[in-house]
Amino acid sequence: MSARWIEVADGVHVRRHEELDLSLGLVVGNDACLVVDTGGDEVQGAEWAAAVRAVTPLPWTVVLTHAHFDHAFGTQAFLPCPVLAHPNCVDELVIDGAEDKEKWSAHYKTENRPDIAKAIRDTRIVLPDTLVSEPTTVDLGARIVEIAQFGRGHTDHDLVLRVPDADVVFVGDLVENGAPPAFEGSFPASWPTALAGVLELTGPDTVVVPGHGDPVDSAFVAAQRADIAAVVDLARELTAGSVTLAEVLRDSPFPADATRRAIGRLTGRNRSGR
Score class of each variant (00 low, 15 high):
Val168Arg: 05
Gly273Met: 05
Leu249Gly: 01
His107Arg: 14
Val138Trp: 01
Ala77Thr: 09
Ala182Lys: 10
Val12Met: 07
Asp100Phe: 10
Leu245Glu: 13
His107Ser: 07
Leu127Trp: 06
Pro255Leu: 02
Ile116Thr: 12
Ala246Arg: 11
Asn30Leu: 11
Ser186Gly: 13
Ala179Thr: 06
Leu22Gly: 11
Ala179Ile: 05
Ser242Gln: 11
Ala72Met: 08
Val221Leu: 02
Arg265Ile: 03
Leu84Ser: 02
Val138Phe: 09
Val232Ile: 07
Val94Met: 05
Phe170His: 00
Thr239Asp: 15
Ala51Val: 01
Arg53Gln: 12
Val243Ile: 15
Leu58Ile: 05
Leu127Cys: 11
Gly40Trp: 09
Asp156Phe: 03
Thr130Leu: 07
Arg152Asn: 14
Glu200Asp: 12
Arg261Ala: 14
Pro114Ala: 14
Thr75Glu: 02
Arg113Val: 11
Asp139Leu: 12
Thr75Gln: 05
Val209Thr: 08
Asn88Val: 09
His66Asn: 14
Pro114Leu: 15
Ala189Pro: 00
Pro204Asp: 15
Val232His: 00
Val14Phe: 08
Asp37Ile: 07
Asp214Phe: 04
Ala142His: 07
Leu84Thr: 05
Pro181Asp: 06
Ile120Ser: 07
Gln224Glu: 08
Arg269Gly: 01
Asp173Gln: 09
His86Ala: 04
Asn112Lys: 12
Gln224Cys: 03
Arg271Met: 07
Val55Thr: 08
Val163Thr: 03
Asp205Thr: 15
Arg162Glu: 04
Val221Gln: 01
Gly25Gln: 06
Phe254Ile: 04
Arg152Gly: 06
Ser242Ile: 10
Val168Tyr: 05
Gly172Leu: 02
Phe254Gly: 00
Asp217Glu: 13
Ala196Gln: 01
His17Trp: 15
Arg152Tyr: 05
Leu79Asp: 12
Asp100Leu: 12
Pro57Leu: 10
Glu19Val: 15
Ser272Gly: 11
Val132Glu: 02
Arg225Ser: 12
Leu58Thr: 06
Val163Met: 09
Gly11Lys: 07
Leu199Cys: 03
Pro128Phe: 10
Ile116Asn: 02
His154Gly: 06
Ala223Phe: 05
Phe170Met: 08
Phe187Leu: 08
Leu238Gly: 03
Leu58Ser: 03
